[in-house]
Computed example of a mutant assay.
Amino acid sequence: MTGRVVVGGEALVDLVPTGDEHPDDPALRALAPRLGGGPFNVAVGLGRLGVPTTMLTRLSTDAFGEALVRRLDANDVDTSLLQRGPEPTTLAVVTLDGAGAAQYAFHVAGSADRLVADPGELPADTAALAVGTLSLVLEPGASRYAALAVREAERGRLVSLDPNLRPGLADDPGAVIARLDAIAAVAGLVKLSDEDAERWGRTPSDLLDAGAGAVVLTRGAEGLTAHTRGGGVVAVPADAVGPLVDTIGAGDSVHAALLAWLAGRGALDRAAVADLDADAWSDALRSAARAAAWTVSRAGAEPPWRHELDGSLDGSWAPARDVGP
């Protein structure tokens, strides 16, 4: 396995329903804090899969920020690029529908992660930079991450993008679209959901024509599809490995598993991604689908560890509830 992945973007706290009724109103449910945020979940997922990973973000010095640092440490994620400040941690209030699908209401005013500064030089062994989600919507950090992505692509590093667009968060939707377009044009990999593609107004073919090396589209229960330069269009079904608990972090686990698959084959490189054939993409997507299956089988964003994913891919999958830190 060669090269380091730097993951840039928000780290936040999801307030997730526990199932317990609120004592003052039986229509409400008690909420429990779970550590998350798209890029944060990707970093944890990569760390669990044994990929050298560094998290780039700004964290609060509050109790939630300290807990986020501890979770990164516990999952073998390097924290040397973390920035700290007294601003509050971003909060996401989660509601679950009858099928376990998550909806989010974000509390982001003046929060620490959106105030990230340009980190300067990334670690010398960096092979890839992954960016995405809220961090590319909320200024001033959004423009800084976008500029970093373009700069690192120009230096020959693989850029991986996950837009994860959330309705109602952007003060200037046109500026967000322009920012995503600029990153996608230099990205070796774009991973997005079918909902993101619709909100962005870009098809996988559009993104390939604009310059992206490959586009992986997640389609919920319909599975994953890779639109590629070297392998055409490749699709795999979603995994059905047990009861669905919730979908929190499923897409982030896909992103982490794809990058881990590339890292394991020495392919954290734009040209290498563009040249993958259909068989390689099928294998990569199968790994990503199984990572998502592990994540949705347990509450919150709990991506698989290396031994879990390896075991499940050889047919010995079994659900586990003791998932570590």
Score class of each variant (00 low, 15 high):
11 A>G: 14
13 V>Q: 06
16 V>W: 00
18 T>I: 09
19 G>P: 12
19 G>E: 11
20 D>F: 07
27 A>C: 00
38 G>N: 13
39 P>L: 00
40 F>D: 00
41 N>G: 09
43 A>P: 09
48 R>L: 04
53 T>E: 01
55 M>W: 00
66 E>G: 15
74 A>V: 04
91 L>Y: 08
94 V>P: 01
99 A>G: 14
101 A>T: 13
112 A>Q: 02
119 P>V: 08
128 A>P: 08
129 L>T: 10
130 A>P: 01
143 S>Q: 14
147 A>P: 02
152 E>A: 11
163 P>R: 10
163 P>Y: 09
164 N>I: 01
169 L>M: 15
177 I>V: 15
181 D>G: 10
184 A>F: 04
189 L>T: 04
191 K>F: 11
198 E>L: 13
204 P>M: 03
205 S>G: 13
206 D>L: 10
232 G>R: 00
233 V>W: 01
233 V>D: 12
234 V>H: 09
237 P>W: 11
239 D>G: 12
245 V>A: 14
246 D>V: 08
257 A>W: 06
258 L>A: 07
262 L>P: 02
264 G>E: 08
273 V>D: 10
279 D>I: 04
279 D>K: 06
282 S>E: 14
282 S>W: 05
283 D>K: 09
288 A>H: 04
291 A>G: 02
291 A>Y: 00
292 A>R: 00
300 G>Q: 03
300 G>K: 03
301 A>T: 02
309 L>S: 10
310 D>R: 07
314 D>Q: 14
